[in-house]
Amino acid sequence: MLLTKLRQVLSYQLSTAELIGIGLLLGVPYLAVGLVWSSTHTEHPHQLHGADLVVSFLGSIASWPVLLFANVCMT
């Protein structure tokens, strides 16, 4: 019974537009939170300049969940 339901769910096909829509629904909030996180935690990048600063900022946007967890564990 459970295996049949699982196969039915896994065999469901999505169109490309639906996959793009799901990506946007998940990606926009993730990037928005990352942007807020990176904008409010700016104590580290003061010593960086140029490309290093840009890469650090983009990296902190992409990895905000890890940084959030590390920040909670450090305090």
Rank of each mutant, 00 (worst) to 15 (best):
M1W: 12
L2M: 10
L2F: 14
K5D: 15
K5C: 12
R7C: 09
R7P: 00
Q8G: 08
Q8F: 14
V9A: 10
V9T: 11
V9C: 01
V9N: 01
L10E: 08
S11I: 09
L14F: 15
S15A: 05
T16N: 10
E18D: 06
G21D: 08
I22Y: 09
L24N: 05
L25D: 01
L26W: 02
G27M: 08
G27E: 09
P29G: 05
P29S: 02
P29M: 00
P29Y: 00
Y30P: 03
Y30K: 03
L31Y: 02
A32R: 00
V33M: 12
V33K: 02
G34H: 04
G34T: 01
S38H: 05
S39P: 03
T40F: 11
E43R: 13
H44N: 04
H44I: 14
H44W: 14
H46C: 05
Q47W: 13
L48N: 08
H49R: 12
H49G: 00
H49D: 09
A51C: 08
A51Y: 08
A51L: 14
L53K: 12
V54N: 04
S56K: 09
F57Q: 12
L58V: 12
L58C: 13
G59R: 00
G59K: 04
G59H: 05
S60A: 03
S60P: 00
I61C: 06
I61M: 09
I61H: 01
A62L: 15
A62H: 04
A62F: 14
S63A: 14
S63T: 12
S63I: 09
S63D: 04
P65D: 07
V66K: 04
V66W: 12
L68C: 09
L68H: 05
F69K: 04
F69P: 00
A70H: 09
N71W: 11
V72D: 01
C73G: 00
M74L: 14
T75W: 10
T75Y: 14
